[in-house]
């Protein structure tokens, strides 16, 4: 059995969360509340050291004064907490949304549209490639709701949903396996690191 106080705390918290399998209980709620507080502070401190310090303070110290505008926009974001001047936070939101939309326009055009189309348009010389063309077109037809799914369109949409269901099933299977591997990891921690029953 471990003599490390940290391992004991981790084991206590792990059992606390696992106790939810029985039912919602105070042991679980305490562990959950610790997680809420600790993770909020973790990201706050992470942001201070990895964003504010290098990107804002570091650049200001180098004399790149225009970074002060970003700081001002950031402070304006906090005005949301003061109802009287809350409208000023819209400037910062507008900056984030506007530049984000411009950036995403290019990113999605490249990665989700152009690259996907390029990847789909392959010579029809294998079952895989034929499946690719048929699946993508019918899949897109399934998501086309401007016309009723009847006749040829309905048939194509039906083939599209077959592909989509296979994909959902594969993703589901993948997720289940990932979660189970996490569970194995936690069990290994409890039986090996904490109790020392496994070597």
């Amino acid at each position: 059995m471990s003599t490390d106080i940290g391992v004991w705390i981790a084991a206590f918290l792990t059992l606390g969360i696992l106790s939810f399998l029985y039912k919602d209980n105070p042991f679980y709620k305490v562990s959950e509340s610790i997680f809420i507080g600790v993770s909020a502070a973790y990201w706050f401190v992470y942001m201070i050291y990895n964003v504010i310090e290098p990107n804002l303070l570091g650049n200001l110290q180098k004399g790149e004064w225009w970074y002060a505008v970003a700081g001002i926009l950031g402070v304006m974001m906090l005005f949301r907490l003061i109802p009287k001047i809350g409208w000023l936070s819209r400037w910062a939101v507008a900056f984030m949304i506007g530049t984000g939309a411009g950036l995403n326009f290019i990113v999605y055009l490249q990665s989700n549209v152009m690259k996907q189309i390029r990847g789909t348009l392959a010579p029809l010389n294998s079952i895989g490639n034929i499946m690719m063309i048929v699946g993508v077109i019918t899949g897109l037809i399934y998501f086309f709701f401007s016309a009723e799914h009847k006749g040829l369109l309905g048939g194509a949409a039906k083939v599209g949903i077959w592909f989509i269901m296979v994909s959902f099933g594969a993703s589901f299977g993948y997720t289940v396996m990932a979660r189970i591997s996490l569970l194995i990891g936690r069990m290994h921690f409890l039986f090996s690191d904490w109790l020392g029953l496994l070597h």
């Binding site: 989700n112 690719m132 077109i137 899949g139 998501f143 989509i164 994909s167 594969a170």
Partner: peptide, 20 residues
């Protein structure tokens, strides 16, 4: 690699066009 990728591609294209 195939049926899963095909559906992901169709969904990705839809998402991309929606985002644009």
């Amino acid at each position: 690699d195939y049926p899963n990728m095909v559906a992901k591609r169709a969904i990705g294209l839809g998402v991309g066009l929606g985002m644009l």
